[in-house]
Design a binder for these strands. Structure first.
Lengths: 350, 350
DNA sequence: CTGAAAGCGCTAACAA
DNA sequence: TTGTTAGCGCTTTCAG
């Protein structure tokens, strides 16, 4: 007594062999209805529950997905709230497929690489989700050697499976919205080019301009780190010299920094400058004026990352990237004069 | 070839028994220097790394801590960024002690209870960290039956080990700061009383008043859910009737909602009403005006939760709660006239 | 369909 | 000190 019942106890009580009990318990074929019933009944009576470790060791699966973040969580993609949503979706998908999610937070890519090696060597995950790939990715070699499936969140430079926001389209949407408001000279405060999502966002900006027949003016494209202070000083320095009536920022905190700078330069938002940005955070929602942004749907980003990883684990060869569409949320910061609200998710084609 | 080397391979190559190899590999005593060296060398040459699952099954430890959140992540303690910091600290502490962190996100306490049962039954965690305990805690019975250690994050009503912010002191600090600015009538926009941390925050408010010899006026204590809109409407409704010159909010988003309401009532912040709140989020930092808040140091909250759990797992009987001190961060929202800055962490006694 | 037996890779008595 | 031998609890051939 005390010790919890094992499959042997169940088998004994049901009067069958352990292997039969195993088959029955796992709902597998080749077990007669009555035998199955006896086994299930015995398990029920005994309060039997399989020991996960034993199961995992026996069949060689860990039922575990490792999430690796090679960067401080609140900088993940520029905003603090991003991570919570990402994780929720990821967890949901993992759980739906019977996988466990384990967390591995590193402060640098080197640390992440060490972490990955140790996971691979201990064979403690069936697959890995790695966020924020950069040009270096020091762990790629290890990943290749061990045959553990993985997906990136964010577009990697190397050829590898990944899931990402549709950054190009997201930005195209937002910029087109500004254009639709009648703006002809739209500045773009982008993030550092080392982030692939910033490159993609620039592309979306350019496409929107081109579609509207507006010229691309390099002098209107600025860059700052993804923090308020950096955005503030960049705009403070560069804004006075250029003529523009709207500004698109690559992240919400950058937008906020830009607004602070603009105010100090005597330009009000949205009256003098319309603002749109990416990242529908608490900040964007509650800032005064509330910010027009693209909601990146991080939940689904996480969800699909886990889902795709599970597919890879199951041997599917679906290697094309998955892009999660964003959704434009129109708020006061971009309003020329009157109303607005929430734009439809699917941008209509015209 | 192909298959990764096991401890048997190492033993064979070193010319010793498996058990000896195990001892040597794990740095345990009763192994001669030379034998240990031979074993280590063999392992090195073979590229041996222990299989974590096998290890875990053999010694009955999972080396796994389960984090259970019975509530949507961005509502965890009222703010979205909270979770990322909490998790970082928790992960750090877990990793430092050789534990893995696995995530279990539920949307309700019932779901959390189901999740906990399944973890307990599968014996897949050595200990549990459970956030946001409420009066019901439907999983308490299960927890008692299986003998798995756990800690709460947040003060539970039942008697159980927990780690929490020092909410009383945090709020005392903030309210005293308002008093120090010369305010005599300070309204308190608290959260719902079902949260123990709201009860504690009220206590801190009362203590600060009492220390300053100010009367406690129930009519100045309001409640709203921890979202902007709720705070807004509560303040919009209740503010006009009461005379007050400062407002303390139990969370940053509540403060923001309150400010919006006050503005519409024709009262500017901080000129007409000084504001302080709890939760040093991006929102609090970047809002205009920037908000005076108490930084809860979530990182350490998570860190100590994991650390305490590990202590319990190791059989230590340290059952008193751990309270993480907060830090007052003074910003413009509470400034009567002039300067300010960051208050010292340790409040000086006078 | 069912049962006996051989592992999965490692740890832990116990004996030598 | 070191080696032998059982397991940990489950899955999975492979006969019957």
């Amino acid at each position: 007594m005390g010790r919890s019942p094992t499959i042997r106890d169940v088998a004994r009580r049901a009067g069958v062999a352990v292997s039969t009990a195993s088959l029955a318990l796992n709902g597998r074929p080749y077990v007669s209805k009555e035998t199955r019933f006896k086994v299930l009944q015995a398990a029920e009576e005994l309060g039997y529950h399989p020991h996960s470790l034993a199961k995992n060791l026996a069949d060689g699966r860990t039922r575990n997905l490792g999430l690796i973040t090679p960067i401080s969580l609140d900088h993940l993609f520029g905003s603090a709230g991003f991570f919570a949503n990402l994780l929720s979706g990821m967890h949901r998908a993992a759980a739906d497929h019977g996988y466990n999610l384990s967390l591995h937070i590193a402060d640098s890519e080197e640390e992440a690489a060490a972490c990955i090696r140790s996971l691979l060597r201990g064979r403690s995950a069936d697959g890995l989700i790695i966020t924020n790939p950069t040009s270096s990715c020091p762990y790629l070699e290890d990943l290749g050697r061990h045959r553990v499936p993985f997906v990136f969140i964010g577009r990697p430079l190397a050829k590898a499976p990944y899931v990402d926001n549709d950054n190009v389209e997201a930005c195209r949407l937002a910029v087109r919205h500004l254009i639709d408001q009648g703006h002809l000279r739209i500045a773009f405060l982008n993030g550092p080019e080392r982030f692939t999502f910033c490159a993609d966002r620039l592309l979306g900006y350019r496409i929107a301009l081109k579609e509207a027949g507006l010229p691309y003016d390099e002098r209107l494209v600025w860059r700052s780190e993804l923090v308020e202070a950096a955005a503030y000083s960049t705009v403070k320095e560069l804004a006075p010299r250029k003529g523009f009536t709207a500004l698109f920022a690559a992240s919400d905190v950058q937008a906020v920094g830009a607004i602070r700078a603009l105010r100090e330069l005597g330009r009000q938002v949205p009256q003098d400058v319309a603002i749109a940005c990416v990242n529908n955070s608490e900040l964007a929602q509650h800032f005064i004026p509330p910010l027009t942004t693209v909601d990146l749907h991080e939940y689904w980003l996480g969800h699909w990352a886990a889902k795709r990883l599970v597919q890879l684990i199951q041997g599917e060869r679906a290697h094309h990237p998955i892009l999660i569409p964003g959704e434009l949320v129109v708020r006061e910061s971009s309003k020329g004069g009157d109303g607005g609200g929430k734009a439809s998710c699917k941008p209509k084609e015209s």
